[in-house]
Write a protein that binds this DNA or RNA. Sequence first.
DNA 1: GTGCTCACG
DNA 2: ACGTACGTGAGCACC
Length: 884
Amino acid sequence: MSKNKKLLLIDGNSVSFRAFFAMHNVLDKFVNGDGIHTNALYAFNNMLEIILKDEKPTHTLVAFDAGKTTFRTKMFDEYKGTRDKTPQELMEQLPLIQEMLNYRGIKTYQLPDYEADDIIGTMAHKAQLDDMDVTIITGDRDLTQLATDKITVKVNVKGVTETESYTPEHVKEKLGLTPKQIIDMKGLMGDASDHYPGVEKVGEKTAIKLLNQYGSVEGIYEHVDEMKKSKLKEHLINDKDKAFLSKKLATIDLDAPVSLNLSDLEYQGDNQEQLLQFYQKMNFRTFLDRMDVPQDSAEDLKEIKVQALDEAAIEKIVQSDKVHTLIVEGFGNNYHIDPIVGLLISDGTDFYGTVDFAILENEKLKAWLSDSTKEKYLFDNKATVALLHRYGCDLSGVTFDMLLVAYLLDTNDNKQDIGLVAKNYNINLPSEEEFYGKGVKKAVPEDENVLLNFLAQKAKVIFDLKDKMMAELKDNDQDSLYDEIELPLSNVLAEMEIKGITVEVPKLKEMENTFATKLSEIEQKIYQEAGKEFNINSPKQLGVVLFEDLKLPVIKKTKTGYSTSVDVLEKLKDKSPVVQMVLDYRQISKIQSTYVVGLQKFVQPDNKIHTIYLQTLTQTGRLSSIEPNLQNIPIRIDEGKQIRKAFVPQHKDWEIFSADYSQVELRVLAHISGDEHMQEAFNEDYDIHAHTAMRIFGLDSTDEVTPNMRRQAKATNFGIVYGISDYGLSQNIGISRKQAAAFIESYFEQYPGVKKYMDDIVKYARENGYVETIMHRRRYLPDIHSKNFNVRNFAQRTAMNTPIQGSAADIIKVAMINMQKMLEKEKLQANLLLQVHDEMIFEAPKSEIPTLEKLVPSVMDSAVRLDVPLKVETAHGKTWYEAK
DNA sequence: GTGCTCACG
DNA sequence: ACGTACGTGAGCACC
């Protein structure tokens, strides 16, 4: 009857579930005035707005599951038996979601004894008979069996705002099956998450193969007798009943006793008034903003009156006892060189701003900035300190750095953007990109009032969110991580960056010439061998030469062609002389472009490189270093290591001094796992890798350990820290997967505490949604609940690794802060210049080296108290090269 | 802008 | 059966 009618069907339970876990990391931020969590509600509504806009349905229905028992549990009482309980924080939101849907003019429905799937199947079927187009939105793939020419099934991917569309063509492309055959596939393979069995040893691959041959479960069993004798045939025969039962369980009912007519589903559109009240009750600012209704002006950020930051204003500021928020706005991402564009100071009531930096020469303002009794809030202390330093100002008295707090609360808030943080709290402040534009359009607004108003908005947001964020920090037991580690560290890092490390450019120039000659030599040889000239740096062109012209065997492929990575080339070394040449070329070319040439671009007129440490980026709590990255200067191969000869102390008669923690991650593991054998090894200061080798190879003494055994044990220790898999270990040390699995088993037998830690931490992550370090640094792991095997496994390995890597990061951060204090206290001239995850690099007068050799290890090994000792090794020399 | 490769811990 | 080591940044080719 109607070509242009369109029905939108949503699986309420599965989408709510996904919405909940997609925003699980912000669970505590989304709480309304009544203490009810609203994260799933928020994400669900966000998705709904996008879907309604895209689909423009005329009819809508959201189906929910009615209860625990269904006709399926009657057929098979373990159906969905082992499924985790729905979290309480989600349970309380389900009625709210239904309420909101009502206000949005969308019908909701549930039916005793039936799942949402069956309601959707039935209504989709009805609508199809009526010639309507149907779109189904769901969080899980079970519904894809419903796809037809008229019915499209869209499955949420990555959260809920993106979907993957399943049409019959798409199913064919992905699986090589028709949608209906998905039921047969599930019958054969079963479903782990719904907890019903299929045929033993039959997974997706086998199921698809069988169905391509025989069409359906019925078809398979008609021909099962004709199959060749095989394990598969045996399993099929043994599990015939299971296959048919599972197929039934997997089949969505298209004729459930649903008491709805299509006309009941007509989309009504929003009830503005009720929806408005509802959003207000839920504190949904973003949605209120979109509703285009007048708002409470007290909360409105749109216009803030900014007064001039002049001498009169400064007088008021310095006289005041109030806390002030300070915005020093840089433009560009390198605050060591890019310009400052604006300055704003506010006590929350008055906002004083200027774009004229002569004001920073004002002595009263200078004194106020450096006065530690004058309390200040800001966003990004390190950047602010660095910017002000360039104008001869010191900064002190900062107690709230919103950047650091946001990152500690959730390591995913690592975009260094105040607008993005504000959005997490439902406050509509433009992001840097939204305000300044991006790409070629990126620019400071011509009208300075526009800019100052933006800065005022930032200041206001900082005031508005400070209490809430600090309270969250306390709830998470992270206040001392912030007060005692991250905030003091930001000052230490600022000092290190500002100080910079001296580089001898002539030394780099000299290397550049040497390597250039070497490169062109190898280049010519490669061309000769290959019989043609080509770009060796192009993996594509290189692939053609190696695998087509020279016909070398293809070991690995990438998405786009042949892989030419080191591990592939290593295996092809003896097949053709050109392979070794390419390896040599690659090595030198990397050193040349990234380091010899690359680093020179960063040397400033003071002959120094000033890197930027990102303190709020990594998921584990480590630092990272950019522009340039000084944490990956070559050391493993000698040609590369030469680069370090260009890094020198800033004065004659000074030296570079370095100190690193020995096996800090394994010591952390020994501590947090409490494993007796591993702790003993460290307490007795044994060679840990040899000791591990002795244990896993069942030897009586470390004297029997061969170098190869030690090497393998070392790799296993690393693997353990990374959240081991037999495959990963086998690849790394070139043994079979079986052998690797045996190593791991033996390892866990010898170190049962480690095994227990691995099991417990994954369980902890599942129950709490996050893991934490010894200093309570948190990392949320929503993927721990993923249905996807790979995604879930990755999250599990992360759960194992993060507390280890993160605690090691905590430890060195404490050591850096203590070290800086100690240098000051002892009035040493030595400067802390660099940090490379487990080591600190200093420059110091030669005369101070003996002092440092005692002092630095003692500060580092006493940074925290673990159940095993920390061990520190030091070295020094004229250049960084010699300090190792 | 994305993918590949490779430098570090 | 699935396809894997953990955490980063930068240069180059190619679209």
